[in-house]
C-alpha cells in the first residue's frame, strides 16, 4: 500500500532530473529542468495565478462558510438538515460536471442567466474571454463547489463555543459584531486554520474546473500550475522530465503549508 504511494513519488523526483518522454530511457540533465522552469515566464504566470486563485477562494469560502454556519445554527434541526442537503449538492457532484453546469449560467449560448440578472447593475462581462472576469468566474465556482466543507466544519465548531461566554458578553453590552469577533472567532481559530489548510492544498492543485470552464487557459491567464503540467506532459509537448520538475516544485510549496499542521498533529498524538 505504501509502495503504491511512494513509488510514484520517487519516480517523479527521479524524472525531474531527466530529459525524458514516454517509452524513452531518458538522459540525466541535473538541475536543467528546474532552472528552465524557474526562469520560464509561463511557469511564473501560472504560479502567480494559482496563488491569487487560492487566496481568493480560501477567503471567500471562509466568509461564506461562516455566514451559512451561523444561519444554519439558528434554525430548527429539521430545517437545518434540509438546507444542508441542498448546500451539499455542489460538493458531492463530480467537479468536472459541476464546473460545466455552473459555467452555463454565465454563458450567453445557454441563455446568459447571470448577465441577465446583472444587467441593471451595468456589469455584464464576457466571462470566458475577459481575463479578469474569467479569473473571478473560477474563484466563484470554487466557492460554490467547496463552501459546503467550510460550512460543515464551522457548524460543528459553533456548537463547541461556550454558551456562557456569549451570554456573559451580551450582559456586558457587547454588540453582535463584537461578540462574533472577540469570542466566537477566537474560539474557532483551530477550525478556521484547518479549513484554510485544506483549501490551500486544494487550491494549489486545481485542475478539473479550469479544464472545463476555460479550456484555453493560457490565453486568458487562467493557467494553473497543474494545467501547465498537463500541457507540458500530455498536451502541447511530451516533456515528462520538465513536468516532473514542476510537480516537485508544487509539492514543496504544499509541504511548506503542511508543516504547522503536521507539527500540531504530532503534538496531539504525543499528549494523547
Amino acid at each position: 500500500m505504501t509502495a503504491l504511494m511512494i513509488g510514484p513519488l520517487v519516480l517523479t523526483v527521479y524524472n525531474g532530473f531527466q530529459r525524458v518522454s514516454y517509452g524513452d530511457p531518458g538522459q540525466f540533465v541535473g538541475l536543467a529542468n528546474y532552472t528552465s522552469t524557474l526562469t520560464d515566464a509561463r511557469f511564473l504566470a501560472a504560479a502567480g495565478f494559482t496563488t491569487l486563485y487560492t487566496a481568493g477562494m480560501t477567503v471567500g469560502k471562509i466568509i461564506v462558510g461562516y455566514a451559512m454556519a451561523l444561519m444554519l445554527n439558528a434554525v430548527r434541526p429539521k430545517a437545518r438538515s434540509f438546507f444542508l442537503g441542498l448546500l451539499l449538492v455542489p460538493y458531492v457532484v463530480p467537479t468536472v460536471i459541476g464546473a460545466l453546469v455552473f459555467s452555463w449560467l454565465f454563458n450567453d449560448t445557454f441563455g446568459g442567466l447571470v448577465n441577465l440578472l446583472m444587467q441593471p447593475l451595468g456589469f455584464a462581462p464576457d466571462w470566458f474571454t475577459d481575463p479578469s472576469a474569467a479569473k473571478l468566474l473560477l474563484v466563484l465556482h470554487s466557492i460554490w463547489h467547496e463552501a459546503a466543507f467550510a460550512i460543515l466544519v464551522l457548524l460543528a465548531a459553533l456548537q463547541g463555543v461556550p454558551r456562557e461566554r456569549i451570554e456573559a458578553a451580551a450582559i456586558d453590552g457587547a454588540s453582535w459584531w463584537q461578540t462574533q469577533w472577540r469570542i466566537v472567532v477566537p474560539s474557532m481559530r483551530g477550525f478556521l486554520a484547518f479549513i484554510a489548510l485544506i483549501s490551500i492544498m486544494d487550491g494549489f492543485r486545481v485542475f478539473d474546473s479550469i479544464r472545463m470552464i476555460t479550456p484555453a487557459a493560457s490565453t486568458v491567464g487562467t493557467e494553473s500550475l497543474m494545467v501547465y503540467v498537463y500541457n507540458v506532459a500530455l498536451g502541447e509537448t511530451q516533456q515528462l522530465g520538465l513536468a516532473s520538475a514542476i510537480n516537485v516544485i508544487t509539492i514543496v510549496i504544499i509541504l511548506i503549508f503542511l508543516v504547522p499542521f503536521v507539527r500540531q498533529t504530532w503534538q496531539e498524538m504525543k499528549t494523547a
Partner: peptide
C-alpha cells in the same frame, strides 16, 4: 503523517508515473 502528506499531493504526482 505520510498518509496526510499524500492526501495533500497533486494528482499528477500519481498519474504521470
Amino acid at each position: 503523517i505520510l498518509a496526510l502528506v499524500f492526501r495533500a499531493l497533486p494528482r499528477f504526482v500519481v498519474a504521470l508515473p
